[in-house]
Structures are given as C-alpha cells and as structure tokens.
Design a protein around this nucleic acid. Structure first.
Length: 402
DNA sequence: TCTGGGGTCCTAGGACCC
DNA sequence: TCTGGGGTCCTAGGACCC
C-alpha cells in the first residue's frame, strides 16, 4: 500500500520573514510587489488573509483591502536557504523526498513503518487515529517546528493527489490523513478548484456543465469529459477519483531559462526597450554559462499595454550561451513582433532546447568563441562579487536616468 | 481590481521528408 | 489532375503551478 505525504509550508515567505523580524507576528504581512507597484502578492500572512488578501492578487488590490498591511519585497536567497534546511530534515525520515517547489515536498513513506513504528489502528479522515503515515507525519511536523520554528501542514494518503489536497485542507499547522477507501468521501464536497490542475478556465467550463464539486465531477462519465475537454478529460476523470494522472518520476532536467521585466509604466521608447532586451540577454546568458548550458531556441515575449501577450521564437543553427547572440536574436524577433504604435508592458527572453556542454565547431570559429566565452566568464565573476549591475555592456544602460 | 516572474506541459498547424 | 500516411521539427498560444 502506497503511503504518500505532502508537506507544505504555511505562508512560507512570511514565516521566514518573521524569523528575522518577530515584530511582524500577528500582523497583516504581504511578501511581493509593494502596494503602489505593478505586481502581485507572492505570500500573505494569515492575518492578511482575513482581509481577503491571497497570493497572486494584484498588490494594489491588497493595499486597498488592507491599507495598513506591511509589504515586503522578499528575499528569495534566504527562502531557498530555509527550504534547504527543511529538505534536510525531511530526508532523515525517508530517502524518497521530492521538493516540487521551494515550499512543498512529496515524501514516499511506503515501507517506512518498520523504521518509525506502526500504529495501524484505522480511523476516519482527520480523526488523528492510526496509520504509520500519520505517526511519521506527526514526527516530521514536530521536527520542522522544533528545528526551524517554521509552521507546516501535512497530508497523508495513498496517492500524490489526495495527499496534496489533504495538506491544503489541513492548513494552517494541520495534519490530515485520508485512509484507503475514504478518498471519495473526503474529496466529494470540495470545490473542483481544489484539485491541482484545475484552474480558472477548467473551473468555468465545468461550472457551465453544472459541476461545482469533486463529487459532481465524479458523476460525469469519461466520455462526456473527453467530449468537452479532449485528452485532458481523461485526466479529469481520474482526478475526480483521487487517482494520480502522471507519474511522479524525478525529472531534474531543466527545460528552459528565462527572464522578463514588467515596466513600472508602459514604454514606447525604442531605446529603453532595446536596452532592456540587452540586459535580459545578459541575465539569460549568465545563467546558461553558470549551468554549462547552451540554448538552441530563443523566444521573445512581448506584452502590450492592453495585456495581450505574444511570443516569437527562433531556432539557431548552433546552440549558444553568448549574450550577444541571444541579444541579436531577441532584438530581431522583437522588431518583427512590435509595430511601434503599441505601448509595451513587458518584454522577456527565454532560452530553450538546452544542451549540455559546447558543440563541435571549426577551429577559427572555436577560437573566436573561446575569447568571447572568456570575456563573458570574467564578467560573471565580477558580477558575482559586486552585483549584477557592476558590469553591463553599454547597450543595457538605460537611455535616461531612472 | 488590474493583473510578477520563473517555470512545465499540451495542442495544433505547417513545413518537410520518406 | 488529384492528392496517402506517418514522423519529426518548428512556431505560437495557452492553461496551469508556486
């Protein structure tokens, strides 16, 4: 019998901030864009949530809902450090730990009963009684709290899907075990939106079909779902029954590297757009070199003032990790995509079709490239020591002071 | 209300090849 | 004059997640 635990840190970014500034405790705190900036809430304290604030909400809306809320820009390196500490704790309980994001992990507890001592008496979901998984989950939650003072919630079930939904329902500081056989009863009253993979669009279509809860979804036939959603319908059919739709194998290969910028105000000045592209190309190039990746596809992203997003991609003959090639490619795509009449809200550059290590090149070409690589790596070193802005090619300098 | 930044995966059409 | 089927690569858009 599978036993999966889903460990989810509660209001993670805010909780870490509280470690460094205890006076934040009990106050409405938001990590993300400031209340007068373009951007969204990345994390909200439970106090802030009482005002209706939640993650992904525009910060300006959050500010309106709670003018006295404290807005923090966030310190992602710090969050990563605490995430690593949590991971190390988790790994003491089972070798099979998959961090699926900075603040959540799946643990496969199958077969760990002997290690941790089973308490096999069965009980209804959430009753707190029984299950080896339950016992371990209690120990994990306590260990994380004692060693980091960070709160988390844990769901335990026999599928990844139900474990994740359970940790979500348990929040905050909760523990929820869904015994085998109790999945349908547990899921049935929940709104479909609680199922991972069902977002705003799918929710709306389901609602139009008269489906609001997971129980109602489970009563729709597979044929009807395939009719309405195509291949995705089959996945919905399984999800409604608490079954995993994809294999949770560890796939650590990164597929793309990207950077983008939303301007504080929409921009129509070609020079400013060009310098931003050059800057983004440098960020992307640097990360490619850091990871020893070469990219064969460069994608330009552009979002207009009306919030229309378009992408233009170009596949190169030779994979690259050079700022200049990335910049030239992106700039050419940008010229093709932008009609100069529209104001621009966002530009971004993504590097895809990643390969590891350099490709074979003719000798002269290789030498020229080696020099460019050397230059780029030297610049990376300076940036590592003095910050991103210590070295920039002249192109990335803004056309006017900001 | 006015919508980040960094990702993954999926679909669909056209080009091109055999 | 009419017109296959399968496979791969590329591009564009979009849903979704944290």
């Amino acid at each position: 019998m599978e036993q999966i635990a889903h460990v989810d840190m509660d209001a993670f970014f805010v909780s870490v901030e509280e470690l460094y500034d205890p006076t934040l405790r009990g106050k409405p705190v938001v990590v993300g864009a400031a209340g007068d900036e373009r951007g969204v809430v990345a994390a909200a304290s439970y106090e802030a949530r009482k005002y209706g604030i939640h993650s992904a909400m525009p910060s300006r809306t959050a500010k309106r809902l709670c003018p006295e809320a404290i807005f923090l820009p966030g310190n992602y390196d710090r969050y990563q450090e605490w995430s690593d500490k949590v991971r190390k704790i988790l790994e003491r309980f089972t070798p099979i730990v998959q961090m699926v994001s900075i603040d959540e992990a799946y643990l496969d507890l199958t077969g760990t009963e002997r290690l941790h001592g089973a308490a096999p008496a069965a009980g209804p979901a959430g009753s707190g009684a029984g299950g080896a998984g339950w016992t371990i989950a209690q120990k994990i939650q306590r260990a994380i709290w004692e060693e980091t003072k960070l709160p988390c919630s844990i769901g335990v079930a026999n599928s990844y899907l139900v474990a994740k939904v359970a940790s979500d329902v348990a929040k905050p500081r909760g523990l929820l075990w869904v015994p085998a056989g109790a999945e349908a009863a547990f899921l049935s009253p929940l709104p479909v939106r609680r199922i991972p993979g069902i977002g705003a669009v799918t929710e709306k279509v389901l609602y139009a079909m008269g489906v609001g809860t997971v129980g109602e979804l489970a009563r729709v036939t597979e044929d009807q779902l395939v009719e309405a959603f195509g291949a995705w319908g089959k996945g919905l059919y399984l999800k409604a029954r608490g079954q995993d739709t994809d294999l949770w194998f560890v796939d650590e290969e990164q597929k793309s590297i990207s950077h983008e910028r939303t301007f504080a105000e929409d921009v129509s000045d070609p020079k400013e757009l060009d310098s931003t592209l050059a800057y983004l190309a440098e960020l992307v190039g640097r990360r490619l070199r850091e990871h020893c990746f070469h990219a064969r596809t460069i994608t330009l992203k552009l979002r207009t003032a009306e919030f229309r997003t378009l992408t233009r991609a170009k596949t190169l003959r030779e994979p690259t990790d050079l700022d200049a090639v990335i910049y030239e490619t992106a700039a050419a795509l940008f010229r093709r995509a932008w009609d100069r009449k529209k104001k621009v809200r966002l530009v971004g550059i993504a590097a895809g079709s990643l390969t590891e290590g350099p490709q074979q090149l003719p000798l002269l070409e290789a030498e020229r490239r080696a020099r460019q690589e050397k230059l780029a790596r030297a610049a990376d070193k300076v940036r590592a020591r003095f910050g991103t802005k210590a070295i920039r090619s002249a192109k990335t300098l803004p056309s006017k002071p900001r």
